[in-house]
């Protein structure tokens, strides 16, 4: 992503948020965007491949699908008349192999918004996530779902 393209995008976002698409306002947005990019020039990570963008989009698509599925599932559970017997709650330890704080944070947020799981805690060395499961079936199945689904995708995005 080159800086000119980024300045145009920032100018458009500025215009959209301030609710005024006049030429002068776009110019002001571009100016502020330019200053922001200049200030952040050292933190700039460098060019990003289109493959990485595709992975981010793939993660976002999976996330939105899982989010809707999870809301529907919770809604069905809540409406059941025999609520107590439908629940098998448990807190399980899920081993993870992610390095940075950002990856762990993203994974924890994704887990919370997906069907039947909610992150409660993370161990100090970032190797284990403690996950609350609403309807516990098979412990290994829950762990392998997380490892092969979101954890794999998160690692692909950050590598």
């Amino acid at each position: 992503m080159n800086p000119v393209f980024l300045i145009i995008v920032l100018a458009l976002i500025w215009a959209a948020i301030s609710g005024n698409f006049s030429g002068l306002n776009l110019l002001l947005g571009a100016l502020i965007g330019g200053v922001a990019i200049w200030l952040l020039r050292d933190a700039w990570a460098g060019p990003r491949s289109t493959r990485k963008i595709r992975r981010v989009l793939s993660l976002a698509a999976l996330f939105l699908y899982e989010l809707m599925a999870s809301a529907v599932r919770v809604a069905i559970v809540v409406m059941r008349p025999d609520l107590k017997s439908a629940l098998r709650p448990a807190i399980i330890a899920v081993p993870i192999a992610l390095k940075s704080d950002a990856e762990v944070t993203l994974l924890a947020n994704l887990i919370t918004l997906t069907p039947g799981t909610l992150t409660v805690d993370v161990s100090a060395d970032r190797s284990v996530l403690y996950v609350h499961v609403l309807d516990m079936g098979d412990r290994e199945a829950v762990i392998s779902d997380i490892a092969n689904g979101f954890e794999k995708k998160v690692r692909e995005v950050f590598e």
């Binding site: 989010l67 809707m68 999870s70 809301a71 919770v74 809604a75 809540v78 609520l83 107590k84 629940l87 709650p89 807190i91 919370t112 918004l113 039947g116 909610l118 409660v120 609350h132 609403l134």
Partner: peptide
């Protein structure tokens, strides 16, 4: 309706955010 804090949290965080 849900029996304890952690199960209630499932309802509030998922269905609430989607709603």
């Amino acid at each position: 309706r849900l029996p304890d804090l952690y199960t209630r949290m499932h309802a509030a965080s998922k269905a609430g955010a989607v709603g």
